[in-house]
Amino acid sequence: MMSAMDIGAEKASGGEGITYRYPAELGVWLFVFADMCIFAMYFAVFVWEKNLNPAMFTEGQASLSTQLGGLNTVVLLISSYFAAKAVHSARLFNIEVYKRFIKLTMFCGLIFLCVKFVEYSDKFSAGFDIATNAFYRNYFAFTGFHMLHVIFGLSFLAWLLFSVKTVEQLKEKTQAIEGAGLYWHMVDLLWVVLFSLLYLVP
């Protein structure tokens, strides 16, 4: 079976037979892996401190809104699907479809930020902030740092949306698009773990 990826790779190499090309640059994979290692330390710190003070963490978790967190998980999973579709259509040099999916991805990312804003302002008006206790310190620092990743991801996507106007530009940028997609999936993947750890695990 010849997947669409191979077809894209063949076109990219000027039709001289199928040259197998890896998705995204190796450097992006390195960045993603290193970043995931920093987040692994976050998870470890959270589990460690939860064990030290289970009562405080249970109480803090009860004040979080699982509905809003769950909504954000769903939004981010869907945006990740759109990003995968955008990468896929970029490989087929289908610029119209590509642009539509990038816009959808960005739309989902913006919804994520809006929900995050509602959630944070809820917590602030309830009198909780980053200095309240260890649970809120971890909650605000980890989700805030994750939100920073979302904002950077949105700016990469915006750059890839506005700088691609012709099919030639799309061909030039295919690897950059794969890289941005990879980064976006990492943001999604880390949120999946953060959501389970912060909101769900009793």
Partner: peptide
């Protein structure tokens, strides 16, 4: 090299 550039971005995150 390009991977050093990506690693520099990671240090900026760090």
């Amino acid at each position: 090299s390009r991977w050093m550039s990506y690693l520099a971005l990671w240090v900026a995150v760090g």
